[in-house]
Write a protein that binds this DNA or RNA. Structure first.
Lengths: 210, 210
DNA sequence: TAATAAGTTGACACTTTGGTCAGGTTTTGT
DNA sequence: ACAAAACCTGACCAAAGTGTCAACTTATTA
């Protein structure tokens, strides 16, 4: 088996940790925490099991490293609901960015879903607090728009959940979504069409009539 | 430990299978297929492990029995999108029924999500076909409404996914949904409010302006 | 280039797992 | 009451699981 070679300047440590995390994301996302076997991660990353333990002292440590990595990714992807934009633009951008992120990071998205379904056992208090804070900030922006009459009075928290849920779905439930769309696999165009439908419907749903 | 006593006339076999399935739903939903240990199901159902194997010959058999049971439940719960209703009523009823079902069957809902995330390994071809058929039927009704001008031209499949996703979310992602709503746990009123927000928004989103 | 640090790994210890089985007890039909 | 059927279960496997370790090789640094 040809050894994956380093990117330029990438240290051995960095490369191996990257390989382990990458394999871990894939396998944890499919099997959940309890269902994942370290040996499988080792095999998928091309390292012997003992070498995995050289970098991580336990299964839990690999898992929590991945969760942290994942939450980081989201923060970068989602900064589009700000008060200085028009609601229509903000929603459209948000929906598109979220769908884009999930499409390009299907395994991470599934892993997060898996973690929550399994009881959010490894989501730290501060991680949850962080999610709450981000939500609150967005909610405040929406409430501002409502006060200005820019959108209709809708419960902003449920509205948010609706957007979150709709955009998550395509990655998490890919086989079901594909069945529903009568495709064998989802392609970029399907995500594109999803973004359009969600944005159109929700915008007509919340913008005041002219 | 006090033995759970029979419901009147319930045969031993029925009772034990019921107990095993019940425990199985709870544990499979939390741990996924690979993560679930038969010993844990045995303990949760109050039977010795060997007794579980007296009724089911393998882990897989328990799991697939549960999946079948679950799909049955859905068929009963969701019969509200029919061409003879007005769109507004049909959507409102569907959203409410789905949220009601997920609220009362949280573990089943999570188990289904878990199964899909883990690659739909045990969802039989005919089950998927059945889901497709039901979807197609609903899609046809929506297309009918569009043709009659009763609702705006929206992609019916993506619209459906939106409804499905939004209504699933509260059960699957309960901790996140609760965080988002600033509650410690979701109550009936929260599901009620969710139904209202989703229905209002989507209806304004698809009904033609007067 | 020599010493030290970092990385690698086969083999091992110990635990848990799915599943079996022989032999017991209880329920049921007649 | 008695036999047959249904039910129950402690003890047991082989396989698979997590994590360890001592001895080895490769990289780094002065």
């Amino acid at each position: 088996m040809p050894r994956e070679h380093n990117e330029p300047d990438e240290k051995i440590r960095e490369r191996n940790i990257r390989l382990i995390i990458k394999a871990g994301i894939e396998i944890f996302s499919r099997k959940g925490y309890d269902g994942t076997r370290i040996a499988e991660i080792a095999e998928a990353s091309g390292l012997p099991k003992a070498n995995v333990y050289y970098y991580f002292s336990s299964k839990e440590q690999i898992y929590t490293a991945i969760i942290a990595h994942l939450l980081d990714g989201w923060d970068n992807a989602l900064k589009f609901i700000t008060a200085d934009r028009e609601p229509a633009d903000a929603f459209r951008l948000y929906i598109r960015a979220k769908l884009d992120y999930t499409r390009k990071n299907i395994a991470e998205t599934r892993l997060f879903a898996s973690e929550i379904i399994q009881g959010a056992r490894f989501l730290k208090k501060k991680d949850r607090q962080h999610i709450r804070d981000v939500t609150d900030k967005h909610v405040a922006v929406i409430e501002g728009w409502i006060a200005e009459g820019k959108i209709l009075p809708v419960d902003p928290r449920h509205l948010f959940i609706m957007l979150w849920a709709s955009t998550q779905f395509y990655a998490e439930f890919e086989p079901i979504a594909a069945d529903g769309l009568k495709k064998s696999r989802l392609k970029v165009e399907d995500y594109e069409m999803a973004a359009q439908t969600i944005a159109e419907t929700v915008l007509r749903g919340v913008l005041p009539r002219e």
